[in-house]
C-alpha cells in the first residue's frame, strides 16, 4: 500500500538554497532514494542526486537524513513515523554542487597522495605469493569501504573545523590501513600519515565508526593501530631510509 509522505529536500547551490517540501506516494518497503526519484519523476526532473547501485554497494547516494549522515538507498521510509517529515540535505563537510550533490573530489586527491602498494618479492618461483586467510582478513575489513565518505562527513575535524588541508580523514586512514596491514606490502607510510595525513588530529571520538554503513571498525581496527605504529616505532627517518634502500 502506498502512503503519502512529506519530504523536505535541499534545493540550491553553494551560494544559496532552501528546503523545499514535496509529497510523494511511498510504496511498501521503499527507501528514501525511491522517494527522491519519485520527486524527480513527478515534480522536479532537475533535482540533482547521485546514485548507482541502489543496494548499498557503491556508496554514491550519501546525504544527511534528518541531520544524520546516511545512504539514501539503505534508509527505509518506514524507519520514520508516518506523520514525520523527512528532511534530506547534502553532506555538510563538502561544498555543495547542486541540491543533494556535493563536490567530493578532495577525497580523490588525498587518496592519490597515499604512497602506493609495494609488494615484497614473490614467494614462489612462478611469481605468486602465499598468504593465509587469517592474514588477509585484517586488511579485508578495510577493503569493504565503499567510499561513501559519510565518515568524512561526520568527522568534526573536517565537518566543524574544516581541516581538509591538514587531515586526511577517517576514510583515507582506512585506505592507508589496507596497505599498511597488507601481508605483502613493504612500503612505509608512517611519515606520510604523521605529516601530510595529520593522523594526530583524530582524537578517537568514534563518530566515524558509528556512521559506517559497512560496519568497519574504523577507529578501533584502523586508526588506533596506525597511531600505535607511529608511536611504537620511535620513528627514525634515517633507519626508514635505510630500510627503503635495502628493501
Amino acid at each position: 500500500m502506498a502512503e503519502q509522505r512529506t519530504l523536505r529536500v535541499f534545493r540550491g547551490t553553494r551560494e544559496r538554497g532552501e528546503l523545499k517540501e514535496y509529497t510523494v506516494a511511498a510504496g511498501e518497503g521503499s527507501v528514501v532514494l525511491d522517494a527522491v526519484h519519485m520527486i524527480q519523476a513527478e515534480h522536479a526532473p532537475d533535482l540533482a542526486v547521485r546514485w548507482n547501485c541502489k543496494a548499498g554497494k557503491c556508496g554514491s547516494c550519501s546525504a544527511e537524513i534528518n541531520g544524520k549522515p546516511r545512504l539514501m538507498c539503505m534508509t527505509r521510509m518506514s524507519d520514520y513515523a508516518p506523520d514525520e517529515t523527512i528532511t534530506v540535505t547534502p553532506m555538510r563537510a563538502f561544498p555543495v554542487i547542486k541540491d543533494l550533490v556535493t563536490d567530493v573530489s578532495w577525497n580523490y586527491e588525498v587518496n592519490k597522495r597515499i604512497p602506493a602498494f609495494q609488494p615484497r618479492k614473490p614467494d614462489a618461483p612462478d611469481g605468486t605469493w602465499r598468504m593465509y586467510q587469517y592474514e588477509v582478513e585484517r586488511p579485508q575489513e578495510f577493503r569493504k569501504c565503499i567510499e561513501c565518505f559519510l565518515c568524512q562527513d561526520v568527522c568534526h575535524v573536517l565537518r566543524t573545523h574544516e581541516k581538509h588541508q591538514q587531515f586526511m580523514g577517517p576514510a583515507m586512514l582506512v585506505r592507508a590501513a589496507v596497505y599498511e596491514m597488507h601481508p605483502l606490502d613493504d612500503a612505509d607510510r608512517r611519515e606520510h600519515l604523521r605529516h601530510e595525513g595529520g593522523i594526530g588530529y583524530c582524537n578517537i571520538t568514534k563518530c566515524c565508526t558509528e556512521v559506517c554503513p559497512e560496519s568497519i571498525q574504523i577507529t578501533d581496527n584502523a586508526i588506533i593501530p596506525l597511531k600505535e605504529r607511529l608511536v611504537d616505532a620511535k620513528y627514525d627517518p634515517l633507519a626508514a631510509l635505510l630500510r627503503k634502500l635495502t628493501g
Partner: peptide, 19 residues
Amino acid sequence: NELEAWGALFDRTVDGKIN
C-alpha cells in the same frame, strides 16, 4: 595473479593460495 601483485586480497586456500 597480476591483480594480486597490485594489492588484491583474495580469499585463501589452506595452503595460502588464492581460493
